[in-house]
């Protein structure tokens, strides 16, 4: 498998996956997301160096294939999950299919190429968007590894499962 999959089919989440996620209770989603977010920030402190003062800005991520919105304020180590109908104001926002957003988080794809292809929408403070994009690209996020490290005694199992999902996502089979 190629290391990067710039031209792969970045699939929309199938309903079999998006439907149950959309119907999960928000507090449960919030708790799980916060756990992973805290762990990932601890593992990648260099993110803040590249973000500089933009770490104080609020960033909203809206997966187009989920009825959810995620608001992140890096300096406050805060992530808030909401339904799209109740999404909060933000300094900058990014929208696209969930797998595209996750691939951007890992630096698996190039944000400019996704923007040119109209697979990604951006709005608000473009300095903040650019700083975050560059910070993420250099930070070395690896979701299977990072999720595994957040899973305590289940680390190995979670990492292997997440790697399997990513492999399938990278070849457009999810």
């Amino acid at each position: 498998m190629e290391k990067f999959n710039l031209l792969g089919a970045w699939m929309i989440l199938p309903k079999a996956i998006s439907h149950p996620i959309n119907h999960m209770p928000l507090p449960l989603l919030q708790q799980g997301t916060r756990l992973v977010f805290d762990q990932m920030l601890r593992q990648h402190p260099n993110l803040f160096d590249r973000l500089g003062s933009h770490a104080n800005k609020s960033f909203r991520f809206t997966p187009t294939d989920l009825d959810l919105s995620f608001l992140v304020v890096p300096a406050q180590r805060r992530i808030t999950v909401s339904r799209k109908s109740a999404q909060m104001a933000a300094d900058a926002s990014t929208g696209g299919p969930l797998l595209t957003l996750l691939a951007l988080l890992e630096g698996q794809i190039d944000g400019d190429a996704m923007f040119f292809a109209r697979s990604l929408s951006i709005a608000g403070d473009m300095e903040a968007v650019l700083a975050l994009r560059n910070a993420l690209d250099d930070s070395g996020f690896d979701l299977p590894r990072d999720l595994g490290q957040a899973a305590g005694p289940f680390a190995h199992l979670v990492t292997r499962m997440a790697e399997a999902v990513r492999r399938r996502a990278l070849v457009g089979l999810v």
Partner: peptide, 10 residues
């Protein structure tokens, strides 16, 4: 230089 590492590698 403004492009991501995935673009550079490819």
């Amino acid at each position: 230089r403004q492009r991501g590492k995935a673009y550079v590698a490819e």
